[in-house]
Design a protein around this nucleic acid. Structure first.
Lengths: 240, 240
DNA sequence: ATGTATTATTTGTCTAGTTGTATAGGACAT
DNA sequence: ATGTCCTATACAACTAGACAAATAATACAT
């Protein structure tokens, strides 16, 4: 019976309601919102109207949708220091969060030209490829692909399997210390799979760092690329 | 607003990545790929999405799944030498595969301007048009359209019908040897029918070669165009 | 040593639910 | 007339979980 003066569109009022629900803590970060169909029923509108509201919220970076899975409340931003000594667990803990990791891939493969060049190997030499996801408070922060020279670090495969931290694994292989020789930072757009891992959307801005680490003797022992969700992570350089 | 995902389906990009891994030699022929569950983790998708990618690769003949055992690399992209002496059966056999062919078309027609020019004929002169599919291990490798000068090669029609190999058919017509005068290579996108024959998808990259072969006297005896599935074949030029 | 259960792993198949996209149309304000 | 808002429907793409079937690895009895 409302006169429907069209002051504010229905979708906008739905978005405001949902944003308030999130602000009130009714939906915690990282949790799934009710399905679009359920929200449509709750507000008594068509599903597309709910989608319009969710699209607005997604544009603001408040939520993120995963096809087939649901719509999730986005995570809070994180500061990540980049310097000579990059230690993920330390970095996250310093920010008052709980770090964790997940191994996505751990294989011995043949080095390609770029990897061989960085690690001072011949193309085709065996390298251990490690791909993993880093979490802060169970929210994905970084996607990393790291390559180690297999012959220079005997036992590195087992060590990486056994230890949570890369630092610990390298220690077990006799590398007491290692430092970043150089780190390069560029901006990219998320590919489909990167977006899935980092819980952002394809085409979203991504910070990519490329780095080489040496052991105490200056021998390269690690070549890695890391992708950060650009709108959720701030890289900081300076105090270390 | 970032353009939404689904420009290319996720499963397709996964297939492309895995095909590239195989092409780069990171997964050798005959070896087992990581389990579907592991690949799903690595790419951050559901197992069914990986299965979709693997199904696509299996259709192309690149992998082969054995229930309970795993998914195995069936074939590496084929190296196909391009040079003075192009012999399909030899080329495939040299790669350790079993060659076979299928005739799609075999007719006597009047030469068009381009064919006449290439074969040093007059437009309208009779030519034998041969269109066929070439297989390696029962997987399509190349789609070819070859034109022969009918009057210069009496009996070529019957010979092509009788013999599997073009070389054998030409031998039967008194051509003991023939060499490529020139080969031109370009990249195209697969049309629907080409994709169907080569068991790839429409719009996939296609290598097209155009060539003229001469007999020992330097007389042109064959004008042909061949289409290769770009992601399954590597043309090599050089040692011959 | 050899054969045999047993267990774990892996692919195949099925059902159900969710988001993404495309199309079509009605109501309404400017 | 034109554009915005909303409804309605259908299908594609992806997730999620469960179970069956085939295989491989392991332990164990003989």
């Amino acid at each position: 019976m409302a006169k429907s003066a069209t002051r504010t569109p229905v979708w906008k009022s739905i978005a405001i309601t949902l944003i308030d629900d999130i602000a009130q803590g009714r939906y915690d970060t990282g949790t799934k919102l009710p399905a679009e169909a359920q929200l449509a029923e709750r507000f008594g509108v068509n599903r597309h109207t709910v989608r319009r509201a969710l699209a607005d919220m997604a544009e603001q970076g408040l939520v993120h949708a995963r096809r087939g899975a649901g719509v999730f409340v986005a995570a809070k931003p994180t500061d990540y220091p980049v310097g000579k000594r990059i230690r993920f667990h330390q970095n996250i803990r310093r920010a008052g969060r709980v770090p964790s990791k997940k191994v996505l891939r751990l294989e011995v493969l043949a080095a390609d030209a770029r990897e061989a060049d960085a690690l001072d190997l011949e193309p085709g030499d065996p390298v251990v490829v490690y791909e993993g996801l880093s979490y802060a408070d169970d929210h994905p922060v970084a996607l990393a692909r790291t390559v180690f020279p297999a012959e220079r670090l005997p036992g590195i495969l087992d060590a990486l399997e056994a230890h949570e931290s890369i630092t610990a694994a390298l220690n077990a292989c006799g590398v007491e210390d290692y430092t970043r020789r150089e780190t390069r930072i560029t901006a990219k757009l998320a590919t489909a799979t990167q977006a899935l891992h980092l819980r952002t959307s394809e085409g979203a801005p991504i910070l990519r760092t490329t780095g080489i680490s040496d052991d105490a003797n200056g021998t390269p022992i690690e070549f890695g690329r890391t992708w950060f969700a650009g709108d959720r992570v701030t890289l900081t350089v300076g105090d270390d």
